[in-house]
Nucleic acid binder design. Structure first.
Ligand SMILES: [Mn+2]
Ligand SMILES: [Mn+2]
Ligand SMILES: [Zn+2]
Ligand SMILES: [Zn+2]
Lengths: 155, 155
DNA sequence: ATTGTAAATGAAAATCATTTTCAATAATCA
DNA sequence: TGATTATTGAAAATGATTTTCATTTACAAT
């Protein structure tokens, strides 16, 4: 599994004209085996244990590259730091969106209603690209509110 | 029109236990007459011409208050600065979402397909709040891509 | 394998939107 | 009219991200 995604990533990098480097491999390995929504610093620290020679700057630069190739999604949950997760294309089974607790910052991945969502998106996309001649590449849907625990706590 | 929203804002502030101050009134006046998606600094500069005694810090604090009361929406288009616009509640006719051009940062407000969207949101909201016991307060839908001009330019 | 070259990297410094601090001021209410 | 708090402005601090620049590395061509 790890070998598989590593191979895929290597090809993906080459396809986009990027070199395959230890930092890039390490970050891809980490993200492809992690479910969490990690910040650049999270990633830096985890990798630092294994490869103390990879700097934070390189982590930022690598993430930029991985987002550019589409392998990684950059997420923004409103605390002022980007978060990253291995990308699941739309239409794929793992495509999901997020519930964000505004109290404790918990993030819930949900995959429910994705079919309905995709239907709406297609319709919207078609309408909007015609009306505004806008070419949609990407979308965000996010719900903000209170998670179960915080709802109880706050009352 | 201006008087009306000023009156409304005054009541809204009082309702939430906030004092009515010149800075707050000025910012509400500005936003309620502006269609643009203004940053804190934009707002500061515009107001600075009229009331040079209102500081940037106060602008930030005021915006925080106005967002908290629900009178203003805080928007994030991925350049690293918040943008603000006078709030239109969901279900209201002016409720809208945004197309964001990733090349030139142009923002297009769209109100199309909002009925379908609201339908999906209701369904999703109901399903998710049951499944995850998550109380949804707010949502974001945003499309990223290329506007007409940039699409032509880049090819 | 060796080498030339552009791309990638690390460390340190810079950036810059936003927050914090704190002393001074002003809005509200009795 | 005060008294009581919330609000404020200016300056400093914060902190995630970016830039700079000298050094190293990947890899294509030899
Ligand atoms: Mn996720
Ligand atoms: Mn708008
Ligand atoms: Zn929570
Ligand atoms: Zn554009």
């Amino acid at each position: 599994m790890r070998k598989r995604s590593r191979y895929f990533a290597r090809e993906e990098l080459k396809k986009s004209g990027y070199k395959v480097t230890p930092a890039r491999t390490a970050i891809i390995d980490l993200l492809s085996n992690s479910k969490k929504h990690l910040s650049a610093e999270d990633i830096f620290l985890k990798i630092h244990n294994i490869s103390p020679n990879i700097g934070l700057t390189t982590v930022y630069r690598t993430l930029e590259v991985l987002v550019e190739t589409g392998m990684v999604c950059k997420l923004d949950f409103g605390d002022r730091r980007a978060r990253y997760e291995f990308s699941q294309g739309i239409e794929k089974e793992k495509h999901h969106h997020h519930l964000v607790c505004t109290n404790c910052n918990r993030i819930i991945d949900y995959t429910d209603f994705i079919e309905d969502e995709i239907e709406l998106l297609k319709k919207t996309e078609k309408g909007l690209s015609k009306k505004y001649k806008f070419e949609i590449k990407n979308h965000i849907i996010q719900f903000y509110g209170l998670c179960n625990e915080c709802r109880k706590k706050i009352i």
